[in-house]
């Protein structure tokens, strides 16, 4: 599949790992393409190069302390640093548990096992890897369901899958059609793929 450009943040190996991860979080099946073909890795890559990646809009002044869960995230690392560190730990963890293989070369069942262990904190560096898993899951879902202008949700695949008609912005003619399926396909901020030249 054609890629919109070279990776903006990830190294080659990091990108391969992310593509494999998003393909397990959102696997290809009869309902949709997988996270990789939906563009979730491209989405995350671009996000990490922008204001999300450097956390420039967040409060990042010291002192940093752990605090209670109710006090919210307190990491001194910006999002991009959390990805770089989290992927390195994941890589080491895979190699240690699966005879020197990295995440990409594991079979899907093994990949799922590692991700499940990250999710519940049964990996080395449990607390930060668990937080990294939450970040990964959140960003993957963002990419899958956000407007396609951000590089994910390619061809509005996620919106078609669930029946979300996108940014139509005027539903007045359907408000009182109760329990009646909305008939029109989705549109995004840039219109619809079939309104412009096909790739």
């Amino acid at each position: 599949m054609e890629r919109p450009g070279p990776w903006q943040f990830f190294t080659h190996d990091e990108a391969a790992a992310i593509e494999a991860i998003v393909d397990r979080l959102i696997p290809r099946d009869e309902l949709s393409v997988g996270g990789k073909d939906a563009g979730c890795a491209d989405f995350i890559d671009r996000q990490l190069r922008g204001p999300f990646g450097d956390s420039r809009q967040l409060y990042m002044r010291p002192p940093f302390a752990k605090g209670m869960p109710e006090q919210g995230p307190q990491s001194p690392l910006v999002s991009a640093q959390r990805y770089r560190a989290g992927l390195a730990v994941l890589d080491a963890c895979c190699k240690q548990n699966f005879s020197s293989k990295n995440f990409v070369s594991l079979v899907p069942a093994e990949q799922d096992e590692i991700l499940q262990r990250m999710e519940v904190g049964r990996v080395p560096d449990a607390e930060s890897q668990q937080a990294f898993f939450e970040l990964l899951l959140q960003n993957t879902m963002e990419g899958f369901f956000a407007d396609p202008i951000y590089g994910g949700n390619r061809d509005m695949v996620a919106w078609k899958m669930i029946g979300f008609p996108g940014v139509r912005y005027d539903f007045r003619d359907h408000v009182e059609k109760h329990n009646v399926k909305y008939p029109l396909p989705p549109v995004g901020l840039m219109g619809r793929a079939d309104w412009t030249l096909q790739r």
């Binding site: 420039r56 809009q57 967040l58 409060y59 990042m60 002044r61 302390a65 605090g67 209670m68 109710e70 006090q71 919210g72 995230p73 307190q74």
Partner: peptide, 23 residues
């Protein structure tokens, strides 16, 4: 409002040390 411009510190009770809402 961007937390970088201004945020608030929070705690559940006066016995705790308040920490900033970073987001």
């Amino acid at each position: 409002l961007r937390p970088a411009q201004q945020t608030f510190t929070v705690r559940n009770n006066a016995g705790q040390t308040a920490l900033p809402m970073r987001e």
